[in-house]
Computed example of a mutant assay.
Amino acid sequence: MGNLCGKESKDNFEGQGRTLASAPAPKTKATIPSSVTINAASTPKRTVGGPPRTLGDANIENDPKAAAAAAAEARNNRSSSGDLQKKLDAQKRQTNTQTLQQAANENRKAREADQATETRNYN
């Protein structure tokens, strides 16, 4: 089955063919930018150094886990003075019973509003 609404695909084998020998020759050298000079004396000598470490010794400055933990602590300890932040802080300080009481009060107010609407719309 074919695609009913699609376009006809181009056939890669249409037109004139060519033999393997007629393909263009591949480049043998890579081009070097003119800004680069080829001089063994001008290339800086690379050195590997630093204090020796023992196997398993974790480098605290470069440890990704320690960096992520420090960033999370910094975000957690940062305080903002916005209204939403104050409301969020108040919610965090609530105990479980206070949270349940607040939810019960909201449900009661919603029921009272529904009852008032029903009374007002009584025919």
Rank of each mutant, 00 (worst) to 15 (best):
C5P: 03
T31P: 03
A116R: 12
T54P: 01
A74G: 04
A40C: 11
Q94T: 03
E8L: 11
A66R: 07
D114V: 01
C5A: 12
P26K: 09
D57F: 02
T37V: 15
F13G: 12
A72H: 02
N76V: 04
G2A: 12
F13H: 07
K45H: 08
T37N: 14
A71M: 02
E14Y: 09
A103G: 02
C5R: 06
N12Q: 15
T47D: 01
Q91R: 09
S42W: 06
L20W: 15
S42G: 10
P26T: 04
T31Q: 14
A116F: 08
E61H: 05
Q98V: 01
I32A: 05
R53A: 02
A41V: 12
D63T: 00
E61K: 00
S81T: 08
L84C: 12
N107I: 00
K109N: 10
P64T: 06
D57Q: 09
N62P: 00
A40E: 10
L100G: 01
P51Q: 06
L100V: 05
L4Y: 11
R93E: 13
I38Q: 14
R108L: 03
N39R: 03
G6S: 08
K87F: 07
A116V: 08
Q102L: 10
A116I: 05
N96Y: 14
K7F: 05
A116C: 08
T31S: 15
L4V: 08
L20V: 04
A116K: 10
G15I: 01
K65Y: 08
Q91E: 06
A116Y: 04
I60Q: 07
P51E: 06
R75S: 07
R111W: 08
A72S: 02
L4K: 02
K10R: 09
A71R: 05
E8Y: 09
K87D: 04
V36N: 00
V48K: 00
A21H: 12
P33G: 15
A70S: 03
S42A: 15
A58K: 09
P44V: 12
T119S: 11
E8N: 08
I60P: 06
Y122Q: 08
A110V: 13
E8R: 09
T117W: 10
S35W: 13
Q85K: 06
P33R: 06
G6H: 04
K92A: 12
M1R: 14
K45W: 04
Q85A: 13
K27H: 03
G82A: 12
D63P: 00
G49Y: 00
T99D: 06
A116E: 11
N123M: 08
R120S: 13
D11Y: 11
R46T: 05
A30G: 14
N3E: 09
L55E: 13
G82W: 14
P64Q: 01
L88E: 11
S35D: 12
T28R: 15
L100Q: 10
A104I: 08
N39L: 01
D114R: 14
S9V: 07
Q16L: 10
N39H: 02
T47G: 11
S81M: 14
S80E: 04
G82N: 07
K86T: 15
I60L: 06
N96T: 13
Q102N: 12
P64C: 00
A70P: 03
A72F: 04
S34E: 11
Q94G: 13
A25D: 15
A72D: 09
E8T: 15
